[in-house]
């Protein structure tokens, strides 16, 4: 297991990468990206068995990860590049013409580390189930992980997928819900209250656990390891991970206002002052 302090140092750099990417092109989604940074760093630098180079679309004998809420692409791109899928200098091209780092992730430009396009919400759980079924068919005992926004759970396809995974005992699947309580138009409770996410997945037949502080690296790493222990017992596993949108940059924290807004030059400087450059900026 990686040292927690080392993971935290990587997370600081990933947060710098997130705000710098979004600032450079004055577009993108910093809030959800910052809130999920601990999750991505723990996953790619500690939990996943994966091979960044050469990248294999099929990912046999590897753990697979699918990002369903594709708009938090800045954290995915930073994490992929910092873990060796492609050169960090390519982060400069985020959302610019001819880039492989499209606004929302895609396989279309051949970016290493991406196995499905996402952005239109609600589709990633079905895709993760399909990949998990192929692993079962092939006797490949590695895991399939996915991440979903809490607002994304308002899409009906999620519940089609949730019903299927439980009914068919897809128990090599770990789906994490980023429960930050925010979506574009406001709090999830105000936009369309969903009641208890945990109770819903439990009622659908999933093994449900929570990570109470999804911005605490130790808690996230421990939670993901615990989730792995819960697999293989006839049920898919759901982690309800409580995070704070915009975590790590004080003026972006805990509000939906920074869902899809880019910082100004001054705001960028302010943000970077709060985030230590632990690896080298791209």
């Amino acid at each position: 297991m990686a040292e927690i302090q080392e993971l935290e140092r990587i997370a600081s750099q990933v947060r710098r990468d997130i705000v710098r990417q979004v600032h450079a092109v004055q577009s993108g989604h910093p809030g959800g990206s910052l809130g999920c940074t601990e999750f991505f760093v723990a996953l790619y630098f500690d939990i996943l068995k994966h091979q960044p180079k050469p990248f294999s679309m099929d990912g046999e004998k590897e753990d697979l990860f699918f990002l369903s809420n594709g708009h938090i692409s800045p954290v995915l791109y930073s994490t992929l590049s910092r873990s060796g899928y492609f050169d960090v200098s390519e982060l400069k091209t985020f959302r610019k013409l001819n880039t492989r780092l499209q606004g929302h992730p895609t396989t279309h430009e051949g970016l290493e580390g991406i196995r499905i396009a996402s952005g239109s919400l609600g589709q990633g759980m079905s895709v993760a189930i399909g990949a998990a079924l192929t692993k079962k068919l092939k006797g490949d005992n590695r895991w399939v992980f996915s991440l979903h926004g809490d607002g994304e759970l308002q899409e009906g396809q999620i519940w089609e997928a949730a019903m299927y995974a439980a009914a068919n005992k897809v128990d090599n699947l770990i789906c994490t819900i980023d429960a930050n309580g925010q979506q574009i138009d406001g709090s999830t409770d105000d936009v369309l209250s969903m009641g208890s996410i945990a109770q819903k997945f439990t009622a659908f037949g999933w093994e449900v656990m929570s990570i109470a502080d999804g911005n605490n690296m130790q808690a996230v790493a421990d939670g993901l390891n615990k989730a792995k222990d819960l697999t293989g017992k006839g049920k898919p596993v759901c982690i309800v991970m409580h995070t704070e949108m915009g975590y790590g940059v004080d003026f972006m924290q805990g509000t939906h206002e920074w869902h899809g807004i880019a910082p100004s030059d001054e705001q960028l400087a302010n943000a970077l002052n709060q985030l230590e450059e632990t690896l080298t900026d791209y």
Binding site: S126, A128, I129, E160
Partner: peptide, 28 residues
Amino acid sequence: PDRFFQVGIAEANMMGIAAGLTIGGKIP
């Protein structure tokens, strides 16, 4: 029977599962 997946009346989920099954080389 191992290669047949009854998904129920849930076509959107069926298309997504099919996309995922290709990752690893299946032909859905």
